[in-house]
């Protein structure tokens, strides 16, 4: 595809995301990008390298729940080298000592203890004032209300009832006292956009997304609560064709979203992505 084809849909999304990255880097003192190693996260890395002409000028953070699929750990080490990533890894050792785990606890508790708690601890430790996230408006209704730059209080709370206005490319450029701003370059992308972009740019991704024995993962999280979907799609082209036809929600295989009617909202109010 010609690099001069600037009017195509994916290029527009890409260029807007690059702008968001650059504005964040120019506005904030200390930026960090949490990295789940999932497809959206990997697209973010790619966009960051485009935004900063090859080298990501801030660290990435992996909150390791210790329940990642083995392939994800392999992918992490490989991608670190490919992209020249400055990676910080954090585990909530305390919670693991206390025996918090999927065998004994509900997914909302485990997600909170093994993801949100160490995530907040890392923010306290490194005093980042901007965190780049890969959330998209099409993923979940609560995410549809997000801003490009979304302030979080010192407690990590999202005041969705009183969000700053955002217009004409002017974002909230100041983090609340003690808090931070979530920077969300992929807000306007859809799942289909992500895969079409991965195909166009040839972005490295875990192969768990592709069908083995008639099943594939559409969204990746902790292995005990992440279920594959029935799918014969064994390569990017087939995934894209499948997504063009599907009407099933992307996060349907993510158990922690579906425990209660508003479990996603509860998770997010407590600081989950």
């Amino acid at each position: 595809m010609s690099r001069n084809a600037q009017n195509d849909h994916l290029t527009r999304l890409e260029q807007t995301s690059i702008h968001v990255f650059r504005e964040a880097f120019a506005n904030f003192r200390s930026v960090c990008m949490p990295w789940s190693m999932g497809k959206d996260s990997n697209v973010l890395i790619w966009l960051a390298r485009k935004a900063f002409c090859g080298k990501i000028p801030f660290p990435l953070l992996h909150i390791d729940t210790t329940y990642e699929f083995p392939e994800m750990y392999e992918f992490r080490e490989k991608a670190k080298v490919i992209h020249g990533i400055d990676l910080i890894v954090r585990v909530n050792e305390d919670a693991i000592r206390r025996g918090i785990g999927y065998a004994t606890h509900d997914p909302v508790t485990v997600t909170h203890e093994l993801k949100t708690v160490p995530f907040k601890a890392a923010i306290d430790e490194f005093k980042w004032d901007a965190l780049v996230t890969g959330i998209r408006r099409d993923e979940d209704p609560t995410r549809a209300k997000e801003r490009w730059f979304s302030p979080r209080s010192a407690e990590g709370n999202w005041d969705y009832k009183d969000q700053p206005p955002e217009f004409w490319g002017q974002f909230a450029s100041t983090a609340p006292e003690g808090g931070h701003v979530r920077v969300q370059p992929l807000l306007e992308w859809t799942e289909l956009d992500i895969w079409e972009y991965i195909r166009r740019e040839n972005i490295p991704n875990p192969t768990l997304y592709f069908s083995r024995n008639g099943k594939r993962f559409r969204s990746l999280g902790c292995h005990p609560i992440t279920h594959p979907v029935d799918s014969p799609a064994s390569n990017i082209d087939e995934v894209i064709e499948e997504l063009k036809l599907t009407k099933t929600s992307e996060r349907a295989g993510r158990a922690q979203d579906h425990v209660g009617r508003n479990s996603m909202q509860e998770l997010r109010a407590k600081g989950f992505m």
Partner: peptide, 15 residues
């Protein structure tokens, strides 16, 4: 393990 089917037929064809 619960799985959802992604390949079921849907009402609208791809545009």
């Amino acid at each position: 393990m619960n799985t959802q089917s992604l390949s079921q037929p849907v009402s609208t064809p791809s545009l």
